[in-house]
Design a protein around this nucleic acid. Structure first.
Lengths: 342, 342
DNA sequence: CTGAAAGCGCTAACAA
DNA sequence: TTGTTAGCGCTTTCAG
């Protein structure tokens, strides 16, 4: 099965084994051009028998084409991003494109390194989370001459295309719903991540809309590290000790919201009567909680699918491609059981 | 900044811009061989100014070296796998190796396709979940002539190396702890996945050890799809309706265990007095629950680190490398608040 | 329908 | 310390 020495097999080996020229072997293996059934069979048989695996490195260099799409995201442990990936993969599976993932840990420097590394493989496109990048990163994407889709945010100016929701607007909408329900003393909890621009924008939209209603955030707290569920419990406890008259808690993500919810339910607090709660993201997990946490869907699957669709279209149709290059998806509020419906 | 036409920049462009030969430019950019500080500066300046990004495709073809490690896992949404990845990345960051992830969705056919695809990029090593693969997949890994580490399971025979825990033993240990605590009427809940060999092995070890203690699983149920937390609630409810005298529930993963726990707490069931509970994996999430679910850690971070270490060592030291090629990690039971400590 | 020749952009090996 | 030469394994192009 394997060849005598340990040198990987080449097209030439298949050519010799089948008595067909390298060129024709190549054609058979790629289903390109017309090849007679007889030779095709000979080639396929030989390739199978030898256990030939083509060398894409050489193929890519020769054809100047690489069927990879670089996907650059901040983290894999956030639930949110694997879901975007799922959307991307769903669409790419229908093409011959292949996603390759890079993780930035929410730092612009690592993002730059990862981007450089990935671009050096000459991918067919880039899908990257967020609109904030170093100048150098932006320059690289511009110079790469390939489609670039910035995802998950539309509050800013993209290098090329963008697909996502407006986090500012999401924050505003939630604030409006809260005010409308009659809550007045509002606490906020989130991650201590100056580099999580989307969370920041949500918070800005939130405070802005509250202000319009004459309300200010009465208390706020930020955490970093550790189990989000635990942090949600702890912060909720601490905040209510400090500011007992709060009647609403807005969490910057569902996990800490869930922690807060579990904590308050144990304490026997009346929700949403005495205190209302809301999170952000619409994670699956919430469905299994004793009460459904109010939240707002970030359209993660859709974002992934739309972004991949743009890349696929551009790769297939070239510059003549027709598509929306700026797509704003609109999330809807899920009131659940923790936010009065007014 | 960008070049005139839209052709990507080459070494030659940098060479011309700096007045240094291509070869020396290459040396500077790779920090290889001795280059005078003066020329080094000239080259780096030119490369930066032009915005040159090397072409790894060409580099890999010429050097016959690719600094990629193929990592093949069943899923990204299982929490477990991103954690293994974290371990892998932690170790690889200290080398010039780079992980590339492929997802199989728990099917051997897709695993085979993904493996083929990845091997065609001629990676320096493979890390792949599980010991069960198609003959063809096994043959490919054998023929690739690169280090292969099969992870997360040691109950079987690897192609090359393996790192993980024995799921059979994990099942047995949990059964023993349960029997020792005095529980007798035991229910089991898990995923309906004939292809999740590790869950299967755990179950086998579990029933085997129970049998040794003269106990049989009194009821069992399997689910597929949907939110695990919700499924945990639903199955727990259904099972206790059907078999009300159960005094212990063993869940094949922590998420459904958490769902069951939340459900039973709402019902006011005394845990672990009236009913004991245990899950599997030791996920972070559990820390935030009202009671700590008993579980068993699968050593995910360690598995990733050890596997990556093996690859890194083999790549660096070649066949002369010294390392354990079969590593069995031993998980410990966390009794939490849901399993009597005897 | 099949084959021969000429690179793709880079690096190993050697020469200067 | 620097430069020259000859490919890496495949595909493009063009000729049969």
């Amino acid at each position: 099965m394997a060849n005598d020495d340990s040198r990987p097999l080449t097209l030439r080996d298949v050519s010799e084994a089948s008595g067909v020229s390298e060129m024709t072997v190549s054609r058979v293996l790629r289903n390109r051009g017309d090849v007679s059934d007889a030779t095709r069979e000979k080639v396929l048989e030989a390739a199978r028998r030898l256990g030939y695996v083509p060398n894409k490195i050489a193929g890519a260099l020769a054809s100047q084409r690489v069927n990879l799409v670089a996907v650059i995201i901040p983290s894999l442990s956030n639930m949110v991003f694997p879901e975007v990936l799922t959307g991307i993969n769903q669409v790419l599976e229908g093409t011959d494109l292949q996603a390759v993932v890079g993780v930035t840990d929410y730092t612009p420097e690592k993002e730059e390194r990862v981007l450089y590394e990935m671009l050096s493989w000459r991918p067919s496109g880039v899908i990257i989370a967020g609109l904030e990048h170093t100048d150098s990163s932006r320059a690289m994407m511009q110079a790469a001459g390939i489609p670039v889709v910035e995802i998950m945010d539309v509050d800013g100016t993209p290098v090329d295309c963008m697909v996502g929701i407006s986090h500012r607007r999401a924050g505003r909408e939630m604030a409006k719903a809260i005010l409308k329900a009659g809550y007045k003393r509002i606490g906020f909890m989130g991650t201590k991540m100056p580099l999580d621009h989307r969370a920041r924008k949500r918070f800005e939209g939130f405070t802005e809309a509250l202000a319009k209603g004459g309300v200010e955030v009465a208390d706020q707290e930020f955490y970093s590290g550790g189990s989000a569920l635990v942090k949600g419990r702890e912060m909720t406890h601490a905040m209510l000790e400090r500011t007992p008259d709060l009647d609403f808690l807005y969490y910057s993500n569902d996990m800490i919201g869930a922690g807060g919810l579990l904590y308050l339910l144990e304490k026997g607090v009346d929700i949403p009567g005495e205190i209302g709660l809301a999170g952000f993201n619409g994670v699956d997990l919430l469905d299994g909680l004793p009460k459904q946490l109010a939240t707002m869907d970030a359209c993660r699957l859709d974002v992934g699918k739309t972004a991949a669709q743009i890349i696929a279209t551009r790769v297939a149709d070239g510059d003549a491609a027709e598509y929306e290059s700026h797509v704003e998806l609109t999330p809807t509020i899920a009131f659940g059981d923790t936010l009065k419906r007014k």
